[in-house]
Amino acid sequence: MTPALLAALQAAQAAKRPVALLTRLSDGEQCLWPDAALPGALAEAAEAALRDDAAANLTLDGEAWFVHPHNPPLRLIVVGAVHIAQALVPMAQTTGFAVTVVDPRRAWATADRFPGITLIHEWTDDAMRALAPDARTAVVTLTHDPKLDDPALDIALRSPCFYIGALGSRRTHAKRVARLAEMGHGEAAMARIRAPVGLDIAAVTAPEIALSILAEVVAARRGAALARRAAPAPAAAA
């Protein structure tokens, strides 16, 4: 890999810009897409590799090429700078997520509690609108306070984010569902919310709950069977 190509690849990563690295395996000739103009088949393979986030092999005119997507990291938006968030944030970073913590309560969302993390102190709906969750974003609400969680969930449900988890018991969630219904969300939207949040590993401590949440986020991202939840029981008296 030439110094120029390495620099270009790292610059794209720093700018959170998706690029594919194409390598001709016979001689190591390389280029970046979309920076370089490429023959149709290579450009299509590069685009597909980025879309599917999966490396690919391609033979063109008898030459083998390796197509290596470099997508920006997945994002995790944590609403609520609470104790569980303090455990979840470093775990998620280690797993490769770019993490943002949203909490208008400045006493909670401090650099002391979340060293080196992007903290947003705006009201949760404004913050979520600005963050604009996309299909590579997971959203977890942890404040346990409807005034903070509900506006964030409202925006998350209107976004294509791949994971929405909300802390709270079944009883808490039933009340939350009723409030979100008043905000105009239907059953299909509500089924996207994972509550109680996290895989059921009987977690008790804050780090254990964080682990269960992160495990469920990964399972959802990878399409694991564990990520599928049974349809909720019909709304009964909660």
């Binding site: 390495l6 690849l9 790292q10 990563q13 390598t23 395996l25 390796f66 470099h70 997508n71 490769g96």
Partner: peptide, 26 residues
């Protein structure tokens, strides 16, 4: 990502003057 991390580490070694090779599962 872990792949990005390895690239950054390799670049740092190289910048410090050490020869470096990269191996990639293809």
């Amino acid at each position: 990502s872990d792949s990005e991390d390895v690239l950054a580490t390799a670049a740092a070694w190289r910048a410090a003057g050490e020869p470096v090779a990269l191996a990639t599962v293809v």
